[in-house]
């Protein structure tokens, strides 16, 4: 059967298929809570940080669209009272915008059509959003951040787009742009939702990248998110030069991730904090019912979170300190001398 060993039977496609490029979907979640950006303005003594960040972001969206003509983009804004899709917009809201109220002069009308559509829509919707925010009265009390909600909505959008493609080969990724030193207490309440988002991202094989502008502390949850999903975490001191960061470190397409070296995060702090004392815990006790982490055995043998009683024997065993033989006798000797 020499005919079969003829070289025409060799699979000559290997080189050609390597060149074919897969489209990708970029979903951007922008944290637009005015409070956080105002704090950033105050800290950096520089007005209009949000605007400059958005300028860089729009150029970044354009560059993503250039990469492959079939690439798609989605932008979701997480503001103080909910989430809003900046792009793509559904047609019902588009009918209402017969009169374009936004100042679109920063966009050149002669631009490449594809870019222009995206950029104009994003600006328009953002302008409307900020106007509405101004009109709404500020509620008192503690407001939790809506970032986890925007990320969840982003994942459902990715899920929908992947289902709609007939040839299952769309790669997706999620980018989060946040700012300010919003670390600290409010994050505790969002731990579970962000964790759920991380797990669904790993299931969808969608890397999560994070850009944090300003602020002094790292956002531990977002760091864990990027670490678990093979994403990039970048802490940028200010909005100057943001476009450089975006087009170098954040531009890595999912298909290129296996061969490009990502910026290293250093050590990520995976430790959690104790439910009772709030200290960071390295060795702790975990309630087997509600999985809350405690650094000390609670008094009364009851779990503070779920109120379940613990077994007496086990707790006494845990309380015991290790016995070191030989020290007692030495001590006696020293006292005698």
């Amino acid at each position: 059967m020499d005919a079969i060993s003829d070289p025409s039977f060799q699979n000559t496609k290997s080189k050609i298929t390597a060149v074919e490029e897969l489209p990708s979907l970029l979903t951007v979640v922008v944290d637009t809570t005015p409070k956080a950006w105002a704090e950033l303005d105050r800290e950096s003594e520089h007005e209009g940080n949000l605007i400059s960040a958005l300028q860089s972001l729009i150029v970044f969206l354009n560059s993503h669209l250039t990469f492959n003509s079939a690439n798609q983009v989605a932008v979701i804004a997480a503001h103080s009272s909910g989430i809003k899709y900046l792009y793509p917009v559904t047609s019902t809201s588009q009918d209402e915008t017969a009169a374009r109220s936004a100042d679109l002069s920063i966009i050149n009308s002669d631009m490449y059509r594809q870019f222009r559509n995206v950029d104009e829509t994003v600006l328009e919707e953002l302008y409307k959003l900020l106007q509405e925010e101004g009109k709404r009265e500020q509620p008192s009390g503690f407001q939790k951040s809506t970032l986890s909600g925007a990320m969840s909505a982003g994942f459902t959008y990715i899920n929908r787009i992947i289902k709609e493609q007939s040839s299952a080969s769309l790669k997706a990724r999620l980018m989060v742009v946040t700012c300010g030193s919003s670390g600290g207490k409010d994050e505790v309440f969002q731990y579970i939702p962000i964790m759920n988002c991380i797990f669904s991202a790993t299931k969808l094989k969608c890397p999560v990248d994070v850009v944090k502008i300003g602020g002094s502390q790292e956002s531990t949850f977002l760091q864990q998110a990027t670490d678990a999903t093979n994403g990039v975490y970048l802490h940028v001191p200010s909005t100057e030069g943001l476009i450089q960061y975006l087009t170098t470190a954040m531009f890595i397409d999912p298909s290129l991730r296996p061969i490009i070296v990502k910026p290293n995060q250093g050590s990520v702090d995976f430790r959690t904090s104790c439910y009772l004392t709030g200290k960071v815990v390295a060795v702790g006790f975990v309630c087997s019912v509600c999985l809350c982490v405690l650094s000390v055995i609670p008094p009364g043998n009851r779990c503070p979170a779920c109120d379940s009683e613990f077994d007496e024997h086990v707790t006494t065993k845990l309380k015991k300190k290790p016995v070191v033989p030989g020290m007692i006798q030495k001590k006696r000797k020293r006292i005698q001398e």
Binding site: N264, G266, S267, V268, D269, F270, R271, T272, V281, A282, V283, G284, F285, V286, C287, S288, V289, V293, L294, I297, C303, S308, E309, F310, D311, V314, T315, L318
Partner: peptide, 16 residues
Amino acid sequence: NKGFTLVKMGFPTRVY
């Protein structure tokens, strides 16, 4: 089957 207990666990840090 009431087996509620506290379990002692460690949370290591990652190093490069």
